[in-house]
Amino acid sequence: MFEAKFEDGGLFKKIVEAIKELVKNVNLEANGTGISLQAMDTSHVALVALQLNEKGFKKYRCEKSLTMGLSIENLQKILKCSGNDDQITLRTQDEEPTTLSFTFESKNRISEFQLNLMSLDQEQLGVPDTEYSSVVRMPSNEFTKICRELGNINEAIGIETSKEGIKFYVKGDIGEGQVSVKINDTEKPEERVECEVDEPVNLSFAVRYFNLFNKASALSSQVILSMSQDQPLVIEYIIEEMGSLKLYLAPKIND
């Protein structure tokens, strides 16, 4: 039997909101340590990796590892029947479940839904736990804003790191520009900007994907960008007390 109860069901809804435009059908994996999900976007340029640790749930039980194939669109239809302040419990009964049960619980109502599961054949990638040569932490709303602004000018956005900080730049038909974000160690953790640069990087990415990734900014006030030259970048949103959502994007290559 599998059972996982979110004290804050709104958080689960935010996670689904954050990934719904990137992935369609996903395998949700549950085991004794928690729930995880890994899926490539339809163009196979981005990778979504979610990890929710067992300790972050109000209640968690998983006796046997389980793979649950679901359609994000259908999951969202069911989640629309829940309130943002509901507690949400996910549950399966059988060893090889064909449905995933949802209980939505508020002060004055309890709702039960069953979502039909699918069998999905999806390639799982082994993402090595590497050290990145530049790691930047900055406010997630600031990153969202920069991507939106520069995305108006060109479809590709450059990121350059140095000991001094991080610079975003664009070069388009209409002209060019750059935004440098200053390092600061303000007492407000959500406004902090930190750069750890062992080796500077200079990379270019399709801003369209960043704009999709930025839907996840509702999960965390800070975003962590981890980069190494000519390698996919990782954009990480820490989900407080529960785990993290990592979004990987392959860089553009100059032929």
């Binding site: 390639e123 996919p232 392959a250």
Partner: peptide, 14 residues
């Protein structure tokens, strides 16, 4: 112009 490799060309299957 700038091109893009797929993400699974960087990471091997599990």
């Amino acid at each position: 112009g700038p091109n893009q490799r797929t993400i699974n060309s960087y990471f091997s299957p599990k």
